[in-house]
């Protein structure tokens, strides 16, 4: 079977992999690059556990062909923290106990950061609708929404201070 050679930027690093033409970006991240932080909960774009940011926009990596990533920028959960310094969204998820099993968490964190990058002061309703594509079965969403609102407040404060 023919394999495509793909060169792409993942979390700022240039990466190369071979993929079959029908392989998804999610499978390539997990199987070819060993980055298993992005999860497959459905494989059909319905759960958001595989959320990554592709050229600045969040997408379900299960709905992207790996070949499409040629020359593009991919940001995954593995790139959210800077070294051991957690991003405020990650820190607030921990402080608010916004995860129980933790399986949907990477997708939620990537999606939440994507929201706050675009909208530093979202309302609760905006947070809920933005995250409607990310399913969580454990928390009932309450603590997740609170964590995102908290992170937004902290980021606003950081920006003001800076």
């Amino acid at each position: 079977m023919s394999r495509n050679h793909v060169t792409t930027t993942v979390n700022g690093d240039e990466r190369e992999f071979l993929c079959s033409p029908g392989q998804t970006l999610l499978d390539a991240l997990r199987d070819e690059l060993g980055m298993t932080g992005s999860k497959e909960g459905c494989g059909s774009g319905d759960c958001g556990a595989c959320t990554v940011v592709l050229d600045g926009e969040m997408v379900c990596s299960c709905l992207v062909l790996a070949s499409e990533a040629q020359g593009r920028r991919v940001e995954t959960i593995e790139g959210i923290a800077e070294g051991s310094q957690l991003h405020p969204v990650q820190q607030k998820f921990l402080e608010n106990a916004a995860l129980q099993c933790g399986f949907c968490t990477p997708g939620f964190i990537v999606a939440s950061k994507a929201l706050l990058d675009k909208n530093p002061n979202p309302t609760e309703t905006e947070v809920r609708y933005w995250l409607a594509g990310n399913l969580c079965r454990c928390t009932g969403y309450d603590k997740i929404v609170r964590a995102v609102m908290d992170a937004a407040a902290e980021l606003r404060q950081e920006r003001t201070a800076a």
């Binding site: 926009e57 969040m58 999606a111 990310n134």
Partner: peptide
């Protein structure tokens, strides 16, 4: 259509 993730595609 779908979610924000889906609509971005």
């Amino acid at each position: 259509i779908g979610s924000v993730q889906v609509r971005n595609r």
